[in-house]
């Protein structure tokens, strides 16, 4: 997004190098007794080709649901995408049939999950689980798919790949399983890799290896990454741009340097301040700020108001909109509204 203009009517030039455009996404969970959890509420962002975008925010802010909405794997019922548009290279995903969507998953979009211990099917071999994607999307025969699986395992760092394809998930360590997950996710050379806290469950030493591997794979296959993480250290290291989520909404969006240097949203400030050495887990934020409002019962005004140091009358009345304050730096906060007329949504 070189031009300061915002999404509504993207220019053709901007459109060309946009890979993913999410607009006004709204995903609810209907949990009974008329209660509606607004897990994702009016989320808009885009990812350019080759870009790494980090999605941060504390637990329950809607990061996973945002990513699952993109590949349309919201547990349904009770979840449902109720509004919005998700375009991959201009193609709308939300209106695709289930069969067409299956051709996007694994092929155009690869996904890595947080729990390497449980994310693989325990009764099939590693080879079978990698080959499955290749046979589905690349239409490879079984033997060719297994050969390719061996190659992929070598690329993700298995020296004894020929043996590993015959092994079962329980025979591998957490870090190795996450390598397998990366091999599966990258097997069909996806345009977008979504990684939902891919290193959270791993040992610190292994975390760095897995992260490096992801970046390596991204460069090798020229993919983009949407990286969900709690770890601001990781953000600083690998992200080009950062989306900060709070209460199902994006509250700040900025290039990574800008976010650290010119932090705007009080929530982001609190986030960064609460992390003296930036490796600390965002999950501890609760103890610093008190708890976030429940997602089935958001206040009328700003969702952060109850925890905000700068809360004003207006904050309790009206939820601010996401406004581009300076090029590529957007914030959802009444404090900045007077500055933002030019780029207002």
């Amino acid at each position: 997004m070189q031009s300061p203009q915002v999404n509504k009517e993207p220019s053709t030039k901007a459109l060309e190098d946009q890979l993913l455009e999410v607009n006004g996404l709204k995903t609810n969970f209907y949990i009974g007794k008329g209660k509606v959890v607004q897990a994702v509420d009016d989320v808009s962002f885009s990812i350019r080709k080759g870009e790494t975008v980090a999605l941060v925010g504390e637990s329950g802010s809607g990061k996973s649901i945002t990513s699952l909405s993109i590949i349309r794997l919201i547990p349904s019922p009770p979840g449902k995408i109720v509004e919005g548009s998700i375009r991959l290279e201009g193609k709308e995903l939300l209106t695709l049939s289930e069969d067409e969507m299956c051709k996007v998953r694994g092929n155009d979009i690869g996904m890595i999950f947080q729990e390497p211990m449980t994310s693989l099917d325990p009764v099939f071999t590693i080879g079978n689980q990698i080959a499955e994607s290749l046979m589905k999307h690349k239409k490879l025969k079984k033997s060719a798919a297994y050969k390719e699986a061996i190659e992929l395992l070598k690329i993700v760092g298995f020296a004894r790949a020929e043996e590993v394809i015959k092994e079962y998930p329980h025979q591998l360590s957490g870090g190795m399983r996450q390598r397998v997950m990366i091999a599966i996710a990258m097997s069909c050379n996806p345009k977008l890799l979504i990684a939902d806290e891919p290193t959270t469950a791993l040992d610190v030493t292994v975390q760095a290896q897995i992260l490096n591997l992801m970046v390596e794979m991204k460069d090798k296959f020229q993919s983009s990454i949407l990286l969900i993480t709690h770890d601001m250290g990781v953000v600083a290291e690998v992200a080009d741009r950062v989306l900060v989520m709070y209460g199902g909404q994006i509250v700040e969006e900025a290039p990574v340097r800008d976010l650290f240097i010119d932090t705007m949203h009080p929530y982001t400030t609190a986030l960064l301040k609460s992390i003296p050495n930036i490796d600390v887990d965002l999950k501890r934020l609760d103890s610093i700020l008190g708890t976030a409002p429940p997602a089935h019962d958001f206040p009328r005004g700003c969702r952060f108001a109850a925890r905000c140091k700068h809360v004003m009358e207006k904050c309790l009345e009206e939820n601010p909109t996401l406004v581009e304050i300076k090029p590529n730096h957007k914030v959802r906060c009444h404090l900045y509204e007077h500055q933002g007329g030019l780029y207002s949504e």
Partner: peptide, 14 residues
């Protein structure tokens, strides 16, 4: 279980 989500994320049909 988690592995089902992984299988679906590979584009395997229901």
């Amino acid at each position: 279980l988690d592995y089902v989500r992984t299988v679906r994320s590979k584009g395997i049909t229901e």
